[in-house]
């Protein structure tokens, strides 16, 4: 999908008031542990920061509990931009999780 951060909108077909569907992407060993590179999920309305999101993943049971056991070792991008744990998710449509990058 193409993310357009400057025109973020909440999808009108959200599951319930306060809950909206987002695309979650996984890369490298995280993708392997989870068994998929992409899923669509309604985000619980209580989640507001990247840190909330990482800790919510641990509560989702197998295989997420093991994959996210060390949330500090996982990096997050909101709509194709790196985000710190304290960052607010706001209206991000695509949220990616990955280990520290190793290109070059």
């Amino acid at each position: 999908m193409t993310a357009t951060p400057q025109f973020r909108t909440t999808k009108p077909e959200s599951d319930s008031p306060g809950s909206r569907e987002v695309v979650l992407r996984y890369f490298a060993w995280l993708r392997e542990k989870i068994g998929t590179g992409e899923e669509r999920m309604p985000l619980p309305p209580t989640i507001t920061t990247v840190s909330d999101l990482l800790h919510w993943q641990v509560t989702r049971g197998h295989p997420f509990d093991a994959a996210f056991a060390k949330p500090d070792a996982i990096r997050v991008a909101l709509d194709h931009a790196h985000a710190k744990p304290t960052a607010t998710i706001a209206n991000a449509r695509e949220i990616a999780f990955f280990p520290p990058v190793t290109g070059g």
């Binding site: 890369f27 490298a28 060993w29 991008a77 790196h82 990616a96 990955f98 280990p99 520290p100 990058v101 190793t102 290109g103 070059g104």
Partner: peptide, 27 residues
């Protein structure tokens, strides 16, 4: 450009060794 690319561009390397082992490169 190289120093920033190494720490910010979303690439991940996986090595396949002669002994058959496969492993993700750590940052």
């Amino acid at each position: 450009l190289m120093d920033y690319l190494k720490t910010r561009a979303p690439f991940w390397k996986q090595e396949t060794l002669a002994n058959g082992e496969s492993r993700w490169v750590a940052a």
